[in-house]
Deep mutational scan, measured.
Amino acid sequence: NLRWTSEAKTKLKNIPFFARSQAKARIEQLARQAEQDIVTPELVEQARLEFG
């Protein structure tokens, strides 16, 4: 299971509600691909840039 830093959680809250669950799934996918067990603000930002 993935842990989220408080900064990453804050960044996730800045994503519009309607896109948040999809973004969260993508962020967690990116973390797993990078073999990380902690979601960082950088991963959230990477996903945000993908979504535009």
Rank of each mutant, 00 (worst) to 15 (best):
L2R: 02
F18H: 15
L12P: 00
V39I: 14
Q22I: 12
V39P: 00
K13V: 05
V39C: 01
R32T: 05
T5P: 02
A25D: 09
A25L: 12
L49H: 09
A25N: 10
Q36K: 13
R3V: 14
I27C: 08
W4I: 00
L43D: 02
A23R: 03
Q22K: 14
R48M: 15
Q29F: 12
W4G: 01
E28Q: 03
R20S: 03
W4H: 00
A47E: 05
Q29S: 08
E45T: 05
F18P: 13
K9D: 04
L49I: 11
N14D: 15
N1W: 09
P16H: 05
A31F: 01
P41I: 14
I38T: 09
W4T: 00
K9T: 11
K13Q: 13
G52T: 14
K24E: 05
A23M: 15
G52R: 09
K9F: 11
N1C: 08
I27D: 00
L2P: 08
R20Q: 08
S21H: 12
K13T: 07
A25K: 14
R20A: 03
K11M: 15
R48I: 15
I27V: 11
K11Q: 12
E35I: 05
L30M: 10
F51P: 04
L2Y: 04
Q46E: 07
I38Q: 07
E28R: 03
F51R: 04
T40V: 04
Q46I: 13
L49N: 10
A8I: 01
A23N: 02
Q46W: 10
A31R: 01
L49S: 09
A47W: 15
N1P: 15
F17Q: 10
E7V: 07
A34Q: 14
R32G: 03
E35R: 14
R32Y: 07
Q46M: 13
L2V: 07
L43V: 05
N14T: 14
E7A: 11
A23T: 06
I27K: 01
Q22A: 13
K24T: 06
E45Q: 07
Q36D: 05
E7T: 07
L12M: 08
I15F: 13
K24F: 09
A19S: 10
G52W: 14
A31P: 00
L49W: 10
L49T: 08
L12D: 00
A31M: 03
T10A: 10
E45Y: 06
K24I: 15
E42L: 06
I15P: 03
V44T: 01
E35Y: 12
K11W: 06
R20Y: 04
N1K: 13
L12E: 01
E50S: 08
Q36H: 09
I15V: 07
E45I: 06
Q29L: 10
K9I: 14
N14G: 10
Q29K: 09
F17D: 06
P41N: 06
Q33F: 09
D37E: 11
Q36L: 14
E42P: 03
E7S: 07
L2D: 01
K13N: 14
A34P: 00
E35Q: 15
K9Y: 13
F17Y: 13
W4F: 01
A31Q: 01
P41K: 11
R48H: 08
